[in-house]
Structures are given as structure tokens and as C-alpha cells.
Design a protein around this nucleic acid. Structure first.
Length: 363
DNA sequence: ATTAGAGGTTAGTATTCGCC
DNA sequence: GGCGAATACTAACCTCTAAT
């Protein structure tokens, strides 16, 4: 049954307009009496003529479409198409339209021969004799929505889940481990499920989940990182080098109770020796008054060129929650280190990142 | 079979953040 | 500095398990 919500109206209008843009095509939303089909559950019917061939498009509308949503929709659509076919002579083409369709969902739809359209203007029409394929990146607003998993609290949840990826975890456990409230954890994990990176067992209070596709999650994170601007670093020169420099920084921070975590190349080096010599170290730090004292203690001078200490300021204390202390040096967790290596973006860091991923993350 | 309690999810709200 | 949007929390609600 068609739902006359404002949201659906705007979306379906945009869809019909997009079809009309295709050369040699006429399209209009079917009249209410045409759409009134008992026993068929769909959102809209669109009557189309492409290259003089009549076509009936059966549409399922969604807000967001991830692979899991798509599979349900495809099942629904195929059932509807079958019902319609009993009384139709025209070719029936199932279609999914949404505000945003994730890349994985698009692949599934193409595989199943289901057409799709989203607000970015992506359009895929697999009808016989009239193949249309326009692929556009996700719309700006929604890209944030889809990518927002990798910001703030949710990112912390992902870190925690990744850290314990072999285990079956409850919401409560993840909340405790990450310092994020149970509702936010719940929402984040549900999101991971929709993307099929997590699997679920049980229900209610007995519900547990496990990261089933860590590789896909990390890949998506990397893709997200590549769209981000490189880290803004405060650069300093400290009169020391190599291991001595790392120790120097660690001591100064420890003395003045500055929260810090070594990341990037120096951290990768600590976890998994790769390069013989690290000339620059990067730390995540909490910017507070004591930081200045710590910098003075290690004789750090702000510089533009020739820096050997880069500071990345992090506001939230929870960011320092799951770091590891190795040899009295606080090191960011491995996933964070990997991501920081990538965001630095230099050729050497990238090589190191791949080595590190293989050796230490194992995904 | 009933109920208490623990945990998960949803809805609404306050705060923060970015942009103009 | 003001506005709007995004974000994460509190509170309320729902679901399931297990104990009596």
C-alpha cells in the first residue's frame, strides 16, 4: 500500500524526474486506481516507456539502504512482481529507491537485477534493451550519516569491539569497556549488524554479538579516513632522538600527569619493528595547562621545519581509555595506530601501515 | 505459571559543534 | 555571537530469563 508521507513523495518525485532525464523515456507515477492492487505490498508503481517499450516499475522506498535492508526489500519486491505478473502484460521491473544506498547494497541490487535510485542521482535501470547505469557517490548529508560511525563515541565503540573481536559481547560489556553509554553502544552495534559486520546470538538480555567481518569494518574505516583532511599537528623540536626521544616525552608527560598516547610510526615501531630509525614521533595528547609544563620540561620548541615531535590534540578523555602501556610508554591501541599511519599519508607511513596491518592487526 | 530483575532498545532532550 | 544541525545522554519502555 502506498504511504502518502511527505518524505516518500519527495523521493518518488525525484525518481520519476530522473527517469525522464534518460533520452527517449517517458515516465509517470501510476494513478491511485492502478496502484490499488490487493495482496501486493509495494510502495509505488511507475509506468515507463523506454525506447518504445512499455515497462511497469514496482518500487520499494526506504530511508537508508544497507545490504541487509536490501535483501529484505528484494525478497518483498520479487513477491510483489510475481503477484503483479499474473495480471500484467508489460515487463515488470523491481526497483529500490532510498535517500542513500550504501556501496555494498548497490552491488547486491545489481547482482539481483533490481534497479535502484538514490538522492545522489545514482540510477541503475537493468531493463531489457534499455540499460542505464549512473553511479554517483553518496549524498553529502548522508555520507556523513553513513560515515558517522567513525566519529566520536561510536568510533570508541568500534575500537572496543575490534579489540575483543574474537569474543561474544553483550551491550553492557562493550559499554563498560569503551566508556560509552549502553544506548549509544546498542545503536552502534545495531548499525554494525545492518552492515553485516557483526553477527548476533540470542535475544533480550541474553543477546550477544561478535564482530564477524573485521576486515570489512577496517576497510570502510580506511575509506572514511582517506576522505578526511590530514591531522593538524602542533610541531615541536625536542633536543633528543630515537628511543631516547620517546622516553623523554613519556617521562615529561608522566611527571606532569598529562594524558598522552604515542601513535603513528613510533608506535608501530614499538609494536612491530619495521624501520630501523624513527626520526619523528606523534602523540595524541589532552590539551590542558600541564601540557605546557611538560613541553618545557622536555625543552620542546615550536617549529615549522625540522620537527621531531608532533602533537595531535584530543579533547575527550575516553580516547585514552584503551591504550596499552609497553615498557612504561603509553601507546595508542593498534587499530588507532594503523589509522593514524594512514592519515599521515606520507609514502613511508603508508608502506608501514600495510606492514603493520598484516603483522599486528591480522585482518 | 507468575513475577522480579537484568539487559536491550526507543523516544525525547540537552548540549555541543560547525558554520555564517 | 547567533543559528541550525548533529550527537550522545537520560528516562521510559520493552523483552527475555530464571527463580519461586
Amino acid at each position: 500500500m502506498p504511504q502518502d508521507t511527505k518524505f516518500d513523495d519527495a523521493l518518488i518525485d525525484a525518481f520519476v524526474a530522473a527517469l525522464r532525464q534518460v533520452p527517449g523515456t517517458a515516465a509517470h507515477l501510476a494513478a491511485p486506481d492502478v496502484m490499488a492492487r490487493p495482496n501486493a505490498r509495494f510502495d509505488f508503481l511507475v509506468e515507463v516507456e523506454i525506447a518504445d517499450k512499455p515497462l511497469l516499475i514496482v518500487v520499494e522506498a526506504k530511508q537508508e539502504a544497507f545490504p541487509r535492508d536490501v535483501r529484505e526489500a528484494v525478497w518483498q519486491l520479487e513477491a510483489s512482481a510475481k503477484t503483479l505478473a499474473a495480471t500484467e502484460t508489460r515487463h515488470i521491473q523491481p526497483f529500490l529507491i532510498a535517500e542513500a544506498i550504501s556501496p555494498g547494497a548497490r552491488v547486491t541490487l545489481r547482482d539481483r537485477g533490481v534497479g535502484y535510485f538514490d538522492k545522489s542521482g545514482s540510477l541503475y535501470v537493468p531493463a531489457p534493451g534499455a540499460f542505464v547505469y549512473v553511479d554517483r557517490p553518496q549524498p553529502k548529508g548522508k555520507r556523513r550519516a553513513l560515515g558517522s560511525l567513525f566519529y566520536g563515541r561510536k568510533a570508541q565503540v568500534l575500537m572496543a569491539v575490534f579489540e575483543r573481536r574474537a569474543e561474544w559481547l553483550s551491550v553492557k560489556e562493550v559499554a563498560d569497556a569503551s566508556g560509552v553509554s549502553p544506548p549509544t553502544v546498542s545503536q552502534t552495534l545495531t548499525d554494525l549488524e545492518r552492515r553485516e559486520w557483526m553477527e548476533t546470538q540470542g535475544s533480550g538480555p541474553a543477546k550477544v554479538r561478535r564482530l564477524s567481518d573485521a576486515r570489512a569494518m577496517v576497510n570502510a574505516w580506511v575509506r572514511h579516513i582517506s576522505e578526511q583532511k590530514p591531522l593538524r599537528l602542533r610541531r615541536y623540536y625536542v633536543p633528543a632522538s630515537g628511543k631516547e626521544l620517546v622516553r623523554y616525552v613519556a617521562e615529561a608527560c608522566q611527571t606532569h600527569a598529562v594524558e598522552y598516547a604515542v601513535t603513528g610510526e613510533a608506535a608501530a615501531q614499538i609494536y612491530s619493528p619495521y624501520l630501523t630509525n624513527i626520526s619523528q614521533i606523534i602523540c595524541r595528547v589532552r590539551p590542558d595547562a600541564d601540557l605546557q609544563c611538560a613541553l618545557e620540561m622536555m625543552d620542546a620548541r615550536p617549529v615549522h621545519e625540522g620537527w621531531n615531535l608532533g602533537l595531535h590534540e584530543v579533547k575527550t578523555p575516553e580516547d585514552f581509555r584503551n591504550l596499552q602501556e609497553i615498557d612504561q610508554i603509553r601507546v595508542a591501541n593498534p587499530l588507532q595506530v594503523y589509522l593514524d599511519l594512514l592519515i599521515q599519508g606520507s609514502g613511508r607511513s603508508k608502506d608501514m601501515a600495510e606492514h603493520f596491518r598484516h603483522e599486528k592487526l591480522g585482518v
